[in-house]
Amino acid sequence: MTTSTNLPGHPQVPNLAEVPGSILGRDSAVTKVLLRRSAAARRARYSTVKIWVGAVCAGVVVIPVVLANVLPLPDPIVGRLSESSLPPFSAGHLLGTDPNGRDLLSRILHGGQTSLVIGFLAIFVSGLFGIVAGAAAGYFGGWVDTIISRLLEAQMALPLLLMLLLVVALFGPSIPVITLVIAFAQWPEPARITRALVLVEREKPYVAAARVLGLPKLSILSRHVVPNILQQVLVVVLLLLAQAVLLESALSFLGAGVQRPYPTWGGIISDGRELFVTGKPWLVTVPGVAIALLVVGVNLVGDGLRDRVRRAKGDQT
């Protein structure tokens, strides 16, 4: 703190410790321990804890899932009936097998690929659509805002899960259909937040300045307003990934997911549901742990990042 900076091309900055009356360089009543205990410092530390714990939780699931095709795993679809219903920690099957003799670990990891692909595609679509719609509604106001806001309200009143089940029944349970269905369920959230942020942002002086310079509305919105709010919105979109994975597993569980024999997380649990009563609880519990770990991880990272973005924006809550 007390060193003088002497950058080339800049006038020399005086060493503040030597300036009369400066508190720098002197012992202060505010000790380092007190600073470390202050609410702001603790908040910063806790958001770091959340991000790290979250990253580890998500990493434990995501990394093996991404590497599933490379790892030496048994086939997830064709099993050996001689090895049916083995408990976890059996030789060659870390998490055991299902009644068809298929390796549970392999099924979970391959199923995770489907879930993650659907999840990422869904938040990409819903994020893009939500940001565009929300930014348009917030910036242009008027009839654009009326239409988009009414759409958002109308969707709240619909029995969503039933609608999603219907649409999947209608167009078939393929990855694009499930992706779009989830994106449809999720677009209101980024749209609402983008709209609220743009409403605040558009009143700021730099927007007025850009208008005075004669920039077209569309480029003010896309080149100046949206980049300023993007960070906050993207955290919300990241949190939607957690929701997307949960929704995909719920749809699979109700039979509206990617179809058998291809594994999905919800599907594996659904297949196991008749079996846990007969003493094979791991077929239900283990795949759920995978989902929960990933979703907890994503939620923690998102929550920690949100704390940070809020702090950077000066919001104290």
Binding site: V53, F276, V296
Partner: peptide, 21 residues
């Protein structure tokens, strides 16, 4: 805080099955 995040991260059907087991 982390506990409540965990609470909203578990699939509800899975919670149901775990409670049943």
């Amino acid at each position: 805080n982390i506990g409540t995040i965990a609470g909203q991260s578990m699939p509800d059907f899975w919670i149901g099955f775990v409670l049943l087991i």
